[in-house]
């Protein structure tokens, strides 16, 4: 996905995802959660026809269904008994609770899938380098090191196989022994080579002064306005949540599911916040249509 939303400043992307995850987790109300779920499904469909979600689909729905089922199975609390199976009472409260948890988990997962695509390591690095420069450099080294170790291990395996030391043959005990040997070579070798990397870092003045960062992303006016907009929406929702709106009290006594008038307003703001990337993409499509 390389849409308009992707092109926003990382801080905007990051704020959106953090805010959305927070909202989906704290607004435990069936209607709110259903709205969030629908919006996120539409968002994923609009983006790439569930292309990225596909590989997660199984995991997402099994977790969702499990959570939905487990709660009423172990929890008998509640006044509204739906039915009774072998002396076990299944209550409306427990089922609702399970359903809400399931929807909330699925929504958070969907947000993370999209987060993974939008927040590239580069953007993350940029965000952290401002506040935590040491962490940022650690992240950068790690990003390079993990694939590097993999490639080295492949190389080592290749050479050792040519010598007749293979992990693919022989009894299990032997194989494990040989595997450990590979890892041992990998570690000694990598440590040896890392001395050169350290020299190269020192030679380029690492650790002498306070580091600055090359900013790939500029915060322009549009980004700041968007950020402000998102923050206002989020604040309204949070304020509503803390005054007890937008959440369904189940225990000890279940409220009515229907919304009070102020809650409709909060729901609108809530939906607007979650919809934001979708609105941006739709706006882009319309603009293209108009231009052509």
């Amino acid at each position: 996905m390389k849409g308009r939303f992707y092109a926003f400043h990382p801080i905007v992307n990051f704020s959106y995802y953090m805010g959305a995850i927070l909202l989906v987790m704290i607004n435990q109300h069936p209607i709110f959660l259903f709205v969030a779920f629908s919006i996120l499904i539409t968002f994923h469909f609009f983006n790439d026809c569930f292309n990225h979600m596909k590989q997660w689909l199984f995991f997402m729905f099994t977790t969702g269904i499990l959570i939905f089922l487990i709660n009423p199975l172990f929890n008998e609390r509640g006044r509204h008994v739906l039915f009774e199976v072998m002396g076990h009472r299944v209550t409306l409260e427990a089922s609702l609770y399970g359903g809400m948890s399931a929807l909330s988990i699925i929504s958070v997962l969907m947000l993370f899938i999209s987060y993974n695509e939008v927040m590239t390591p580069n953007k993350l690095l940029f965000l952290f380098s401002k506040f935590l420069p040491q962490f940022a450099i650690l992240l950068m080294l790690t990003l390079r090191f993990i694939p590097l170790m993999r490639r080295r291990l492949d190389e080592i395996a290749a050479v050792q196989v040519s010598k007749g030391i293979s992990v693919k043959q022989g009894p299990w005990k032997e194989r494990i022994k040989k595997g450990m040997l590979y890892v041992q070579i990998l570690l000694t070798y990598s440590l040896e080579e890392a001395i050169q990397t350290a020299d190269s870092m020192k030679a380029r003045g690492y650790g002498q002064k306070k580091r600055s960062t090359y900013e790939y992303f500029r915060l322009n006016k549009k980004d700041s306005l968007t950020l402000l907009f998102l923050v206002i929406l989020l604040s309204i929702c949070l304020y509503g949540r803390f005054t007890g709106l937008g959440t369904l009290t189940i225990y000890p006594l279940m409220e009515s599911i229907g919304l009070v008038p102020v809650e409709y307003f909060i729901l609108l703001v809530y939906a607007l916040f979650l919809c934001f990337p979708l609105l941006v993409e739709i706006g882009e499509v319309i603009r293209w249509r108009l231009l052509n």
Partner: peptide, 17 residues
């Protein structure tokens, strides 16, 4: 040092602040 060419190129400059 870095996994991305741009980061690599500016590494020294960043160290100098």
């Amino acid at each position: 040092v870095a996994d991305d060419v741009l980061h690599e190129v500016v590494f020294g400059l960043e160290n100098m602040g």
